[in-house]
Design a protein around this nucleic acid. Structure first.
Length: 364
DNA sequence: CAGGCGTGGTT
DNA sequence: TAACCAAGCCT
């Protein structure tokens, strides 16, 4: 598609006046652009700011990140979710040191070969860091473009993706991709929002074909959401001589590589106490006594809504624990409550740890 | 291609 | 409040 200045001119004018001040917009260092783009994948802008500031304070450049321990990278990522991103980020940093002389590459093929860099992130780095005329189509851009051009095709299949990349280039003046890519996303985030778009404040409302057709809320055409499945979990905080047992999950699957208290999903009709005891046996080989109820933690992730029942547990008559036989984890440790601060825990496990820190049964 | 992969904000 | 949604990637 040919670039259309009737669209890009008002867009860039609006962006110059409306852009938010964000830490990664302070210059366009490719390392910081790449880091921010990975951090913001499926993550709302505002939530990324504090993480970005802490991350860049500790790892100001590619070399410092590449030299870090994965455990420290994960710890800085705790709470952001999609933890595979953090491990891929660290791996990609080391690959860039090995293959690209410690620089973020400036060609699409090399970027796409890095773990955690997909079509969008490669385009965003090329456009924002290197000002290349490349499309970067995220969910914001999909929404803006689908409405502006009244596109009924789904942006998810191969044909739709090609179309949206073309439309993105159509609103990018040659040589100004750095601004145009961010402007489209900013418009989607601030004005052309999913459920309550502020069309009266939109610099493109006069050109918007979905608005003219009265179908703004029906664009873009997206697949329906998966149903949420409620599940119950039984979890055991095994205490022995003032320490608690934690294990580090396998790298694959949910919360990969993070630390947790052993536990798992309740079977139909099973009492959470029995779940906790059974899961401890299956995951560690320990035969423990389940004691007091510690907490009930509710948490939602992806398409599940979890109710986690956490119990205090221990060995009969406080006998010494045997060596665990791990089946669901790669590492184990007995730790003090203070020691938990240095480990990376999933959100519900961190909430449980904080509940324990407040609990008089754990005093002293 | 479809579905797994986190978490918290918005409506 | 339950549902929707977010600067997507990987298998």
């Amino acid at each position: 598609m040919v670039h259309d200045p009737r669209l890009s001119a008002p867009l860039l004018h609006w962006f110059a006046a409306s852009r938010r001040a964000l830490p990664w917009r302070d210059g366009h260092d490719p390392y910081r652009v790449w880091l921010s783009e990975v951090m913001l994948q499926q993550t709302q802008m505002e939530r990324g700011v504090d993480y970005f500031l802490r991350f860049t304070r500790r790892f100001p450049d590619l070399a410092s990140l590449a030299a870090a321990d994965e455990a420290e990278v994960l710890r800085l990522w705790e709470g952001l979710g999609y933890y595979r991103r953090a491990r891929n980020l660290h791996l990609a940093a080391r690959l860039m040191v090995e293959r690209h002389g410690g620089r973020v590459p400036d060609d699409r093929e090399a970027l796409r070969a890095l773990p955690g860099v997909g079509d969008y992130t490669a385009g965003a780095v090329l456009a924002i860091a290197y000002n290349r005329d490349e499309p970067a189509v995220d969910a914001n851009a999909e929404r803006v473009l689908a409405r502006l051009h009244d596109v009924a095709d789904s942006p998810r299949d191969a044909k739709g993706r090609r179309l949206f990349r073309e439309l993105a280039l159509g609103i990018t003046p040659p040589g100004r991709a750095r601004e145009a890519v961010q402007a489209v996303m900013e418009l989607g985030a601030l004005v052309c929002t999913p459920r309550a778009p502020r069309c009266e404040a939109c610099p493109l409302s006069g050109e918007c074909r979905a608005l003219a057709a009265g179908v703004v809320l029906e664009r873009p055409v997206l697949p329906g959401q998966a149903r949420v499945t409620p599940i119950g979990m039984g979890t055991a905080v095994i205490r022995h001589r003032g320490l608690v047992f934690v294990q580090r999950r396998l790298d694959r699957g949910v919360w990969g590589g993070l630390w947790e208290f052993p536990g798992g999903q309740m079977e139909p009709g099973e009492h959470p106490r029995d779940t906790a005891r059974r899961e401890v046996r299956e995951e560690t080989g320990f035969e423990v006594e389940i004691r007091d109820k510690l907490a009930v933690i509710r948490h939602a992730y992806t398409r599940y809504r979890v109710t986690m029942h956490a119990f205090l547990a221990g060995f009969p008559e406080d006998s010494d624990p045997p060596e665990p036989v791990l089946t669901a984890a790669q590492e184990w440790r007995w730790t003090s409550l203070e020691g938990l601060a240095g480990l990376t825990l999933p959100a519900p496990m961190r909430e449980l740890a904080q509940a324990m820190a407040r609990d008089p049964r754990f005093a002293g």
